[in-house]
Every structure is written in structure tokens, then in C-alpha cells.
Design a protein around this nucleic acid. Structure first.
Length: 119
DNA sequence: AGCGTGACGAGTA
DNA sequence: ATACTCGCCACGC
């Protein structure tokens, strides 16, 4: 059976699928990268069709994991060695400074030279 | 038609 | 760092 999803949704999931392990993209970044729609649109698409793609690599600009899926996301982050940062409250949140992916090739890995302090 | 809500983001206090 | 406000767009009542 062919799942015909909207063209915009298809682009969104394609971008999400193209995000390399250990890296993340914000909803706004995906929208900006596509040049269409906004963060909320991307969020809606992910909420509906995100189950077919690595949804944990698409996060909020705050770097806060999805409420309700924190454990699942953190598990993936631990496996993929995604740069994390501990907040004052002791809650693990993504270190956007290093984990953010701009969609350019060559950044599929971590930055070298920098001391990787993944929690 | 208006109004509220949501897997958002940025600005301001 | 937190809390509040506004802008954004699509969906549902």
C-alpha cells in the first residue's frame, strides 16, 4: 500500500531522515531549510508522520526533549553520542551549540579538537 | 465567521 | 536561568 502523504509532509520527513546520527535539527531549522512553512507546520507533520523517521533528531530550539518521549529520546542520544548538557534543574537537554546540524555535508560527524563532554 | 489549541521561535522583562 | 507576550500556520469546534 502506498502511503500518499502531502508534498510538504514528504519533504519534512525527508529532511528528518537525512539528519545524521549524533546531530539534531530544530523545527524552525527544518522549515527554514525547506524555505516553506513554519516551525509549527513541521511540528504538526512530525506529530502525524514522525513515527516513520528518526523523530528524536528533530527537536525544539530550546534543546528540550519531547515531553512524554524523553526517555526514548535520551536513549537514542546516548547511543548516538549526541552532545548533551545538564541544566540547573539537573535535567538533560541537548547542547544545541554542538548538536545543531545546518544540513551541510562534512558535519555528519562531531567537531574535532573540541573536548566532547557528552553526558 | 470567530476562538482555542498545538511535537514552535524569538523577543523582552 | 525563568516567565510572559506576540507572531506564525493549520486544524477542530
Amino acid at each position: 500500500m502506498s502511503e500518499e502523504l502531502p508534498a510538504y509532509a514528504e519533504r519534512v520527513v525527508e529532511v528528518a531522515e537525512r539528519i545524521p546520527p549524533g546531530r539534531v535539527m530544530t523545527y524552525g531549522d527544518v522549515a527554514e531549510w525547506l524555505g516553506e512553512g513554519g516551525p509549527r507546520q513541521v511540528g504538526r507533520v512530525m506529530a502525524l508522520y514522525g513515527g516513520a523517521v528518526p523523530w528524536w533528531r528533530v527537536v525544539r530550539a530550546d534543546g528540550l526533549p519531547l515531553p512524554g518521549h524523553e526517555v526514548r529520546a535520551l536513549e537514542h542520544y546516548r547511543v548516538e553520542a549526541t552532545p548533551l548538557r545538564l541544566t540547573a534543574r539537573g535535567e538533560p537537554r541537548l547542547d544545541m551549540r554542538r548538536a545543531r546540524w545546518d544540513g551541510s555535508p562534512g558535519q555528519d560527524g562531531q567537531d574535532g579538537g573540541r573536548d566532547e563532554a557528552h553526558i
